[in-house]
Every structure is written in C-alpha cells, then in structure tokens.
Amino acid sequence: MRLLLVEDDSLLAQGLITALSRMHYRTEHCITGSQAIVAATSSGFDVIILDLGLPDGLALHVIKTLRAKKVTTPILVLTAWDHLETKVEALNAGADDYVLKPCDSREIEARLRVLLRRYQQRQQDILTCQEVEMNMQQHLCRYQGRDIVLTSREFLILKEFMLHPDKILSRQYLDELSSGWTGETESNSIEVHIHNIRKKTTASLIKTVRGVGYMLVSHREN
C-alpha cells in the first residue's frame, strides 16, 4: 500500500515515514503543493497525507486541484491549524479526514485504515482470500488458521494483492511499491518476494500473468 506524504517539515516527515514503514506502508514524500499535484496525478497512491501549511501556500488548492482532476484517492489532512473554518474548508474542498498536530503515528495509521476501508467499501480491517487471512490492524497474517511470518516487504506486497484481488498488478507497480521513489535496493527482487509468499501460503494464491505482472486469485480454481 502506497501513501503520499506531503509535509514541509523534514524532521516530521522523516519520523512519520519511519513509523508508517514499521506499519507496512510504503510512503513517498514531497514538500510542496505543486510537487504533490504532480505526484498524485502521475502515480497511484492509496491515501494522501497532506499538511495544510505548505511552503507554496495553504494546501486547499492542492485538494481542489486533485478533485478537479478526478483523483479520488482519499486525502487525510494533517495540520497544525486548529480553526474550525479551516477544517470545514478542507473537508468541503474534498479532504476525507482531518488530524490535528501533535498527533500519534498510531492515530494516523488508524485513520488511514478507516479511509481505506471506506474507499474500498469494506467493513473491517481483515482481508480474506482463499485460506489466507490478513489482519491489517494487527499486521498479522494466517494461512489455514496458522500464523505465518512475513517480512515487511512480503507483507506489503501480499496486502496490496489482497486489497486488489483478481486484478493484475504490474511488475513496475510492485517494484515501485517495494522499493519506493528513493529506489532502496534490496537483494531480493519482486520474484523472490512472490516466491516466498507462495511458499508460506500456497502456490495457487498468486498467479503469474506472463509479460504483464501478477494477480491474486481470490477463489481456488478447481
């Protein structure tokens, strides 16, 4: 799951990225509103965390521009402005939720899940496909009723598949999800991660679509 964090305070952004990464979220970071508009329109994100006070002005125009460009990604506004008017304005502009600083990273993560649930029209944070069950709140995964241990990236990739069952996810998309904009290198490639997931669950869970990418099969084929 990819998040876009738009925050001009580098220390805070750094801390949030670390915290969200620990919670199995891949977070991309940009500083200004104009950068945010380019990023959100050119790349797919699951949620945008947007600080209202940005160096190039109040970020309300970012929300309005994205909504005008038909970007429906949920927007969680993160701000230090505790004005009712600002909150109402942000929500009216198209934001989905509002978190006031100082805030706990756990609260942000909980709100992110709520936004995702609403966006994906789910009632709870437990995803189920075949015999795999993923608890997004507790970051736990079970197969056939037994806990399985996944690495952070394996969890991230499997969660992405389970959020988009029966949909082909391109290799490039999964690469971006796994390594981010900064291109963090890890010896393991996407193939290795998928191989490990299949090993820990079942080979029939993720199907390779040759030349395109991979797809999670929600129901076992007989």
Binding site: L11, L12, G15, A19, R22, G53, C103
Partner: peptide
C-alpha cells in the same frame, strides 16, 4: 496565539512521532 499554537504543534509532533519511533 493561533500562530504560536500552529508553530508549536509541528515540533511537538516531531517529538511525539520520534519518541514513539525511539520506543519501537
């Protein structure tokens, strides 16, 4: 007061988030 409150909230958030990160 609004400006002060706004300006204090960000460094306080930094403290909160990094304290949490330190703990974990």
């Amino acid at each position: 007061i609004a400006d002060v409150s706004h300006e204090l909230r960000t460094p306080l958030s930094v403290l909160q988030v990094h304290t949490d990160n330190l703990e974990k």
